[in-house]
Design a protein around this nucleic acid. Sequence first.
DNA 1: GCTGGTGTTGTTGCATGGTACAGCGCAGTG
DNA 2: CACTGCGCTGTACCATGCAACAACACCAGC
Lengths: 234, 234
Amino acid sequence: MDSGALRARPAATRRNARTHALEIIRQKIITLELAPGARLSENELAGQLGLSRTPIRESLILLAEEQLVFVVPQVGTLVAPILLSEIETAQFVRESLELAALSESVARATPDDIAELNAIIDAQRIADSRKTQAGFFTLDEEFHATLMGISGHGSAWRTVAQAKAHLDRARHLSLSFTGMSVLIDQHQVITDSLAAGNGDAAASAMREHLRRVFNDIAAVRQTNPELFTLDPSQ
Amino acid sequence: MDSGALRARPAATRRNARTHALEIIRQKIITLELAPGARLSENELAGQLGLSRTPIRESLILLAEEQLVFVVPQVGTLVAPILLSEIETAQFVRESLELAALSESVARATPDDIAELNAIIDAQRIADSRKTQAGFFTLDEEFHATLMGISGHGSAWRTVAQAKAHLDRARHLSLSFTGMSVLIDQHQVITDSLAAGNGDAAASAMREHLRRVFNDIAAVRQTNPELFTLDPSQ
DNA sequence: GCTGGTGTTGTTGCATGGTACAGCGCAGTG
DNA sequence: CACTGCGCTGTACCATGCAACAACACCAGC
């Protein structure tokens, strides 16, 4: 049969039309370029992206699994509303996993790991000074993903990232949330506590860090309550 | 049948061919009826299920997202090998989320909630006495899902269930794992501790419970090491 | 005016055909 | 014998056509 023959996944990285469409549509949903409640159409998206309906349709199925859109047969596909309940669930998942990972990282972090985290933080400070918000987003993700890798559960990042998408979408409601510098300082405290082997300090810093993001979202809710739906039937 | 666990999907859960195929194929993978490494074929599956390739293909894409199969573009679709690293990640995700949920449940559990848990446990004892293993599996899932619902994060069960699929697949390697009665007793300890408001006792009982399942898997690894792959390239 | 039926349009679900490519056997050559 | 190139086969990827159905406009009848 097929003994080995499993080459190191060129499949996952190979850009096919479906992956291409998925990333573009997901990004547009997270950045609110596609607003909650907006009607999507397989045909329309296919035309815009220069593809046929098939890869578009497959992308939408995956996005439905992520709860970013919902599909009503014979009616249409709609961008999911921003449900407070979804955000709270996402926050719960992210916080639980990141805190658990951090706890296990204390006994595992090597000097190289700490150096890597500090390198990312340095890059974040540069991005901050240049006011490149998009760059900071990428580096923020890299920091948290690296931290999860240090815990030995790097492949759990996929799960966190999925939850994070919902949080990020809510964050995008506010154009000016907490300044980057505050977040970067928190990254530094987490890293320093980890380097010092102080798990409790690292955990409380991480919790405060993640909660701050969540609180930003709550603040947006105060100013734009109409954007948040409590009842899915609404 | 399904209690509030699947309540996350409002009304859009109409049984279509894709969902039908997805559930059947996933079940066959988890129960090892489709062995790790087995070659799947859109055409062959379509023939077996009496469908066309389209819903089959969409199912396989979703299963690939769950890491239960992997697709190599012009080669074929294969059932994912049982990677120890995947199992450990799944255990990490499940344990983190269930313990975090349990912690929040202590202050929220009502007498009705406790009664509901006890009712499930009673049903489990009946299933045990009748040696209906399949029934116990369903009730076990219901117990844990209910517990997560009590924490107020019921929709996070979807995430736990996805991790659980990998654990269950590994468990199926062993036909006779830990007797049900031990697991039921642990459910009882967890429930009683929760009813008494003793969060620490509930947490340690839950940790022991989840670890026992994980240890069952480790035992299987001792007896059937060839079934576990450590290196994906192997 | 109001209600019920009907035709039109738009949508997703599913079926099917064409295409590019990986893998393999095999013949031909050095 | 070793090696290279060619063609055959099977696969996933994508394009496209058809069917089923929901929503809505509109009109006939009351």
